[in-house]
Write a protein that binds this DNA or RNA. Structure first.
Lengths: 254, 254
DNA sequence: ACCTGAACACCGTTCAAGT
DNA sequence: ACCTGAACACCGTTCAAGT
């Protein structure tokens, strides 16, 4: 019962409510676009774009741990306080960065049928999420409704609609696909399952042997397969299950 | 080109490598269990369990923002330095908390057939992830291979094995299910899609109208359905797609 | 309108010194 | 062996004052 709850309300309280949406929300993006239109930047001055650009450099070169407001300001040879004219908080900056990387997802499907095109899109999206330097904690902390995420949603929705799904079914298929891709990438990046299975070979058998004898009966029998499966194999099979489901439930209901 | 990259290597470097696994890894959990066995706690003293318990209280009462090492120490009426005898870092503490909440997932399936039982397990897991106070960024930042996660994996694996799947197929089904549930919960908690759809009704139409006319063709036609879909509906349909896929691919391949 | 410089109110973590 | 107290090296954010 000490005084750690007497602290003043966080600064974000001022921004929330009616003033501006939560970073990442549709509202926040809309207001951000409107504000950008109003702004008349003086030449050579700062801008949100320049702040984000500098942040990307810091992130790429020094990693997420080093991505501080002060480091970004240093890179721009200005004071940390100056950045708050262009971003409202560090959180906002991270949302901007997350959406930026999603912009690297390529959308041209090739037109080899809806199923092949959806698979290509899912693989592309996964690869971007795995390669991008934000840790899953930061990249997925706030759902992003920015323009680059909308591009992907639009592409997926379009493929399912072209395949003959109703609006509702295309919605479910798209949202499920996005949930799966994000979850798979986050767990892999978080250390859950690597390219060569859940753990190294030594560690795997050691782990398997350390399981208490009276617990985890299924892991005792199928645990070797579970620990050995690579993230790529799991992803490929997950896509197959999901798209089989789309076919059998939304396209060819018996 | 300032001096922010001249800082000393982070303290975690000392712990990584051969000394101890990354928090959350199988290795880390094993070493943690071994260390707990060696320890002979004096009565009335601190312990990892007491530290975690205090952290859970702080988290529940004051939220994640207030979950600092110092606040946990205050709650235990000790100094912050003292906690480092029992946890190696704040990150470790968060992994311990994440696994703790996964322990609330109930496993009794009811035996109404594999499909109903898997659905129950998925819903239960989702609910725990949604209700627990860690933000998705913290809860999913590190994949957790702790005892409580293994319980869930074991249960899922067991249901799929009982249904007649091979070890490999049960592995794919289980891992895909976990990826989907985590992704869905993280995106919902992050603000992506709420109980009443992606946004409020007003915001939804406003957002829809603000879409540029020459972009997002699919969102223009199916966007209303996409934004209106509730998180519950998306989850229910996602489960159906996934389990349909399991049936058609792993149980009744034509 | 935009930026500087300095301050405010914190952090996680370490470590000599005590018991 | 475990804990205290104090310090180290940082943080994000605010704001008067300048231009």
């Amino acid at each position: 019962m000490k005084d750690h709850d007497e602290r003043p309300a966080p600064a974000s309280a001022k921004m929330s409510g009616t003033e501006a949406g939560q970073p990442g929300s549709t509202r926040w993006w809309a207001e951000r676009a409107a504000a950008a239109d109003r702004r008349r930047p003086r030449t050579g001055g700062l801008s949100t774009a320049r702040v984000v650009e500098a942040a990307l450099q810091v992130l790429r070169e020094c990693g997420f741990e080093a991505l501080t407001v002060r480091a970004v300001a240093d890179r721009l040879e200005t004071s940390s306080g100056a950045l708050y004219q262009h971003i409202a908080s560090r959180d906002e900056l991270i949302v901007l960065i997350a959406d930026h990387y999603l912009g690297d997802v390529r959308l041209q499907g090739g037109g080899r049928g809806w199923r092949a095109d959806v698979e290509t899109l899912m693989r592309e999206m996964r690869q971007i999420l795995l390669d991008q330097p934000l840790p899953p904690s930061a990249a997925m902390g706030k759902a992003v409704w920015g323009p680059n995420t909308l591009r992907i949603i639009d592409a997926a929705l379009g493929l399912f609609l072209d395949a003959g799904l109703t609006d509702e079914h295309a919605t479910y298929a798209t949202a499920t696909m996005i949930d799966f891709v994000f979850g798979a990438a986050a767990i892999q990046r978080g250390g859950g399952r690597g390219p060569n299975g859940a753990t190294g070979t030594d560690e795997r058998s050691q782990f398997h042997n350390s399981l208490p004898a009276d617990q985890f009966p299924a892991l005792r029998t199928a645990g070797a397969a579970f620990l050995a499966a690579s993230a790529d194999d799991v992803f490929t099979n997950g896509m197959a299950l999901l798209l089989d489901g789309v076919t059998s439930r939304f396209l060819n209901p018996h």
